[in-house]
Each structure stands twice: as structure tokens, then as C-alpha cells.
């Protein structure tokens, strides 16, 4: 399926922290279930290494970063690639609003982590709708 013309949701996928996994799970919930025709993703590492095809996609389409920790690797890599960053989400902000949903496992999310990912996914879907409404 063509990727051009959709909103790119790009999580950090942080491998060292559970909140990186939450961001990644939220992205899949959005691009595979909630907004499969409006949103898609690209590999963040491809942006990091400067892959020409992925750079072009990130520069020509609205991008949303999703970060698990204050390093904000997704946001910084999109900015460094001169991608069209239109919104940034921090998993820590969603956790702050839902303090009882602190996930523990990194590899496979526990029920709390999955719930946190679903809440974030809803927020991402709302943001995608706003972006698309503004572009009409």
C-alpha cells in the first residue's frame, strides 16, 4: 500500500525501557486498527542512517513523534532529518495522567502497559483526525 498522503506515526521503540514498548504498541494500534487508512509508520533507524526514500517520505508527509523518555529520540531524529513534524507525544505525559498504569516488562507488555498503550493510541488517533481536518 502506498505510504504517501498519510500521517506518519514514528515511535522511539526505546529498547531499554517499558515506556518505549508502550509507544511502539500504541503506534501499531493506530496504524493497524484505529486509523489504518489514514496513518502509517516508517522505521526510525532508517531516518537515523539517512535512507533517501524514507527521508523523502518524512519530509513530504506529516509526522507525529512518540517518545518514551526525555531523550526524545523520535522527535530529535525527525527534526534532524528535516521531517515534517506536526505533533510530539511523550508516553510519560500519558503515564502522569494515569499513574496506576505503570508498566513493568519491556519485552511483552503487562495488562497495565497495554491499557496505557490503548489510551495513547486514542490520543494519537484524535491528533491524526485533527491533522487531516486541517488539511482539507
Amino acid at each position: 500500500m502506498l505510504k504517501d498522503g498519510r500521517v506518519f506515526v514514528i515511535p522511539c521503540s526505546g529498547i531499554g525501557k517499558a515506556l518505549g514498548t508502550v509507544g511502539r504498541a500504541a503506534m501499531y494500534e493506530v496504524v493497524e486498527k484505529l486509523r489504518p487508512n489514514e496513518a502509517t509508520t516508517i522505521c526510525l533507524p532508517l531516518l537515523t542512517i539517512g535512507d533517501e526514500a524514507v527521508l523523502k517520505l518524512a519530509r513530504n508527509n506529516p509526522c507525529i513523534s512518540v517518545d518514551g523518555c526525555p531523550f526524545q529520540c523520535a522527535r530529535k531524529n525527525i527534526e534532524a532529518s528535516k521531517g515534517k513534524l506536526v505533533a510530539s507525544f511523550m508516553v510519560t505525559d500519558v503515564l502522569r495522567e494515569n499513574k496506576d498504569l505503570k508498566p513493568k516488562a519491556v519485552t511483552e507488555l503487562d495488562p497495565k502497559g497495554l491499557k496505557l498503550a490503548s489510551i495513547l493510541a486514542e490520543k494519537l488517533a484524535t491528533q491524526i483526525d485533527e491533522i487531516n481536518n486541517n488539511n482539507r
Binding site: 531499554g16 518505549g20 533507524p45 537515523t48 529520540c73 530529535k76 534532524a80
Partner: peptide, 18 residues
């Protein structure tokens, strides 16, 4: 976590740039 927890460390790849 399981196979070589005492012998390995990791880092997020995008953190090299960020």
C-alpha cells in the same frame, strides 16, 4: 534478560543521533 544478562548491555539506536 534471560540468555546472557550478565554479559550484555544495550543502547537505543536512535540515541546515537539524539
Amino acid at each position: 534478560e534471560k540468555l546472557r544478562p550478565n554479559d550484555t548491555v544495550t543502547i537505543c539506536l536512535p540515541l546515537f543521533l539524539a
